[in-house]
Design a protein around this nucleic acid. Structure first.
Lengths: 219, 219
DNA sequence: CCCATTGCTGACTCTTGGTCATTCAGTGAC
DNA sequence: GTCACTGAATGACCAAGAGTCAGCAATGGG
């Protein structure tokens, strides 16, 4: 009886279809500019159907975010498999991160933005906590991969620090998050000017910073 | 003929009235949960009147943001007037920043969130570019105050770095921005766990980081 | 061939941001 | 005192978009 399985597959395909449509539209016009109507049209479904697959727009957003995080996770895994000094691994991870977000600016923006806006729906609904949970878990894994890279670096001597690996990872996380913000809200003219004046780019800046943070000679 | 002046004053008072109402409501329920209707009610005006003072909800948001930035600017000015080593000034600024955002979490959140969402209104309207410009200018001044503090630190020897003051300031900015994100999206359970495990708090973490970033012994 | 189940639909409701014709209050001229 | 004028305030109205649901269609099991 392969019917169950087929239905299962079709259901998953529909879901993917929807997700793909959303991502396309996000890239074209951003998430909040995109209406459920448009998404339905692009996915060749009716609006009502969307709600059979995702509770609401916010859940849909989470699902998109999850995809992005998975993508990043794969890339990080790829990095850490390389046989390189830990310091290089850390640098590569961060560069990978920067690359990914700049390559998919619209997408990343959508991921970060709506992030804050949901907030409410845990109240008054059964809710699928799963997707939100999934995202957190993947984020955690990304974090742990970074920790792992730092540990390797400490062992092979390419990283000197008096901080705990996890604490250092946190520091680097903050840094990345800040850079992300910078990229997204392309504003902050003085910051951009600073970069120009010193003939720097964000990736170069990153290397400078890592030099300092991974070679802590104090004390 | 003081009538013009009186009217002027009254107009400003109305504006303030509205802003105060918005800020109250933001603290109670966040910005996007707050409707123009509610704001009008709280300010004891009708909805239509709001639009005589602010082009749209997004402009209103910018105005609120401007207030917040001004507040921060005052605090930074206060810090830099103190007669302390540059390194202390930098630290105090960053702590001030952290304090402010935690004290007014709801408010800060509102400021950061909608930040991204506007985007569009520069198209198709005369628009008041002034408020947005104002915000950018204040942000720039905040940045320059930080640069100033760093310069002081380099001169008095409390800061050692091979980076340009502006570049270092940028680095610290990223850091702050990252911490801000952390505070706002209180999530990231692993990060919180790391802090607990090491009996750290964000302010303590900040001091650790500054130790490294302001005492660069490499090369 | 017929009923049951499941999936899909799009017309509908409701909320909310934004508009505008109308009302109303203050002002100055006479 | 009164009248015309100005501009500030109003709230009924509109449009857009998120979310709902009664009904329809197709598939499959008997």
């Amino acid at each position: 009886m392969g019917i169950k399985e087929r239905k299962e597959r079709e259901k998953k395909r529909r879901r993917d279809q929807i997700l793909t449509a959303v991502i396309e539209l996000i890239e074209e016009q951003g998430f909040d500019r995109t209406t459920m109507e448009e998404i339905a049209e692009r996915a060749e479904l009716s609006k009502g159907t969307l709600y059979l697959y995702f509770n609401d727009k916010s859940t849909l957003h989470q699902a998109v975010k999850k995809r992005g995080l998975q993508h990043l996770h794969e890339k990080f895994l790829h990095v850490i498999k390389q046989d390189l000094p830990g310091a290089e691994l850390v640098k590569n991870m961060m560069l990978t991160f920067l690359n990914t977000i700049t390559q998919n600016a619209a997408f990343t923006k959508a991921m970060v933005i709506y992030e804050h806006i949901k907030e409410e729906n845990n109240q008054g609904k059964p809710e699928t906590p799963s997707i939100v949970e999934d995202c957190k878990n993947i984020e955690d894994e990304l974090f742990m991969l970074m920790v792992r890279a730092i540990q390797i670096g400490i062992q092979d001597g390419s990283i000197q620090t008096r901080l705990q690996p996890k604490v250092l990872s946190l520091m680097l996380n903050f840094q990345m998050s800040g850079m992300l913000n910078f990229y997204l809200s392309g504003t902050h003219k003085s910051a951009t000017k600073v970069l120009e004046e010193n003939e720097l780019s964000i990736p170069k800046l990153l290397e400078e910073f890592l030099d300092i943070q991974l070679n802590d000679q104090t004390q």
